[in-house]
Computed example of a mutant assay.
Amino acid sequence: MTRIRAGLLLVALGTILGTLPFSAIAADDSRSMESVEAMPAGYRDWKLISVAHEEGSLNDIRAILGNEIAVNAYRNGVLPFPDGAIVARLAWRYIPSEENNRAFGRAQSFVAGEPTNVQFMIKDAKRYASTGGWGFVQFNDGKPAHMDAKACFACHVPVKDRDFLFTRYSP
């Protein structure tokens, strides 16, 4: 088994068995999720689900990754997502690429700049029953950030028919 697959297996097993830091969040916990202390090991090696660009006050670019459970659910159209699925959203400010623009002969290229935050949605229908079966956590500079699970969930309610996930799997 490759190192990546071993890491994914450990993350999936840890989530299912409740041994990851995410397990410290109670189902009805609408307070800050500051009890979560670490991002899942190996999340940067998860598979790409999609990319996005947000304008307005966020003005960032994003990569949406999923652990093996989440990616399989996306690929197979499984709704609701099974417990143990984790979706990560990595965001960066986007900046012009002078190097690329010189190559293209005009200003048209943007690349990832300074990271803004990393967010995770963790599926556990029992633990997070009050928020559609999903736990929400955000990290800024690698540290847990203050988040209100109820406020996060409220934004996801309009996509209830997609199990509260904004992101669609990109072909």
Rank of each mutant, 00 (worst) to 15 (best):
2 T>C: 05
4 I>D: 06
4 I>N: 12
5 R>L: 13
5 R>K: 14
7 G>I: 06
12 A>N: 08
14 G>T: 08
15 T>W: 07
15 T>E: 15
18 G>H: 05
20 L>K: 00
20 L>T: 04
21 P>F: 02
22 F>L: 07
28 D>I: 08
31 R>M: 11
33 M>F: 14
36 V>M: 11
36 V>H: 02
36 V>Q: 15
37 E>W: 03
39 M>A: 04
39 M>W: 09
40 P>C: 15
42 G>L: 07
42 G>T: 01
45 D>H: 02
48 L>P: 01
52 A>M: 11
53 H>D: 11
56 G>S: 15
61 I>E: 09
62 R>F: 14
62 R>W: 14
67 N>K: 02
67 N>Q: 00
70 A>Y: 05
72 N>C: 12
74 Y>S: 06
77 G>V: 04
78 V>F: 10
81 F>D: 01
82 P>Y: 06
85 A>E: 01
86 I>M: 08
86 I>R: 03
88 A>Y: 05
90 L>K: 13
91 A>Y: 06
93 R>H: 15
96 P>A: 08
100 N>L: 14
100 N>C: 14
101 N>Q: 10
102 R>A: 05
103 A>R: 10
107 A>S: 07
110 F>H: 02
111 V>I: 12
112 A>T: 06
113 G>V: 06
114 E>S: 10
116 T>I: 02
116 T>L: 15
119 Q>P: 04
121 M>Q: 09
122 I>R: 08
123 K>E: 02
125 A>N: 07
125 A>Y: 01
126 K>I: 09
126 K>Q: 07
129 A>Q: 08
130 S>Y: 11
131 T>P: 03
131 T>D: 04
132 G>F: 00
133 G>P: 10
140 N>H: 13
145 A>E: 09
146 H>W: 02
146 H>N: 04
151 A>P: 02
152 C>I: 05
157 V>R: 09
159 V>T: 14
160 K>M: 10
160 K>H: 09
161 D>L: 12
161 D>E: 13
162 R>Q: 08
169 Y>Q: 07
